[in-house]
Amino acid sequence: MTSSVVHLNGQPATADELTPLAFAGYAHFTAAQVRDGRLRGLDLHLARLRGASVEMFGRALPDERIREYLRAALAAGPADVSLLATVYSHAGEFVPPRADVEPNVLVRTGPPASGPAGPLALAAVDHERDLPGIKHVGEVAKTYYLKQAVEQGFDDAAFLDRQGRISEGTIWNLAFWDGSAVVWPEAEMLRGTMMGVVSRQLERLGVPQRVREVRLADLPELSGAVVMNSWTPGVPVRQLGTVALPAAPDFVALLHRAHEAEPPTAP
């Protein structure tokens, strides 16, 4: 059984249906790791797709329809996969969205992933994403700045907004440890589903959390940092810009424990 499945609105997608999407860029998506047919934070993924659809297209499909499409794609592949659900309109780009046109849902699965082991060195880049609260496609800057960072000897890049605040990574959220609490950076960013899962489980575990502005000058006072996304709840960061960060294995272990505390569910 192949791990690569492509479904459009719950059915296997044809080449003719996929061809118009080759250069399309007005869409949003969510990404998840599925193990044994289940994923963590399903409610957060559904809320992400629902909110972005209303914002971009003026309407959203019912959650149960989305779940039906996810189930169909997962039933066609193995139990452990990476999953992408992308929402777009067949009305196309460069036209005003029509609320009477239902969005389409493209679900793709592929081999499971767990992210890099780290620790990572991140270049500090001045950049603010367009529509940062939406996980949308076509963001050339993320890959461009990753490429630039690697050419400079880093592993990836983190973004600084125009106020000099650290916001997020190319495809990551950032979290810091101040010795007693998890620190989430205050800035415009995409709130990741992994970030949501970890945050609510940390609350249930009684772990203090704070949201505050974090700048490069603040890093020496912090006791560790990680990046997280749908692959993993925490990859250690050893350097951000020119600032070295201490190893924080207990912090990383705490985030993984919080993730494991979230019960996985089937769509």
Results as ranks from 00 to 15, higher is better:
His256Ala: 09
Asn9Asp: 15
Gln239Ser: 13
Arg40Leu: 06
Gly224Ile: 01
Leu254Asn: 03
Thr109Asn: 08
Tyr69Ile: 05
Val214Asp: 00
Arg257Lys: 14
Gly234Thr: 03
Ser180Leu: 05
Arg129Phe: 05
Gly10Glu: 09
Asp126Cys: 06
Ala253Asp: 10
Ala76Arg: 10
Glu17Asp: 15
Thr2Ala: 12
Asn9Met: 09
Leu106Ile: 12
Gln148Cys: 13
Gly241Glu: 09
Val107Cys: 10
Pro111Val: 09
Gly206Val: 06
Ala248Met: 04
Gly92Tyr: 10
His28Arg: 13
Ala79Ile: 03
Leu8Lys: 11
Ile166Tyr: 01
Val95His: 09
Leu83Cys: 05
Pro267Leu: 13
Ala141Asp: 15
Ala79Arg: 14
Gly196Ile: 02
Val243Glu: 06
Thr19His: 11
Ala73Gly: 06
Met1Asn: 06
Ala15Tyr: 03
Ala52Ile: 10
Tyr69Phe: 15
Ile166Ser: 02
Arg257Phe: 04
Gly179Ile: 03
Ser180Gln: 13
Pro112Met: 08
Leu254Tyr: 04
Gly41His: 12
Asp100Pro: 07
Leu245Tyr: 06
Ala32Asp: 04
Gly206Asn: 08
Arg71Glu: 08
Leu83Gly: 07
Leu255His: 01
Gly153Asn: 09
Arg238Ala: 15
Ile166Arg: 00
Ala124Lys: 02
Met189Leu: 15
Val140Ile: 15
Gly92Thr: 11
Leu21Asn: 10
Pro249Arg: 12
Val54Cys: 14
Ala75Tyr: 02
Pro12Val: 11
Glu262Pro: 07
Leu205Ser: 08
Pro264Arg: 13
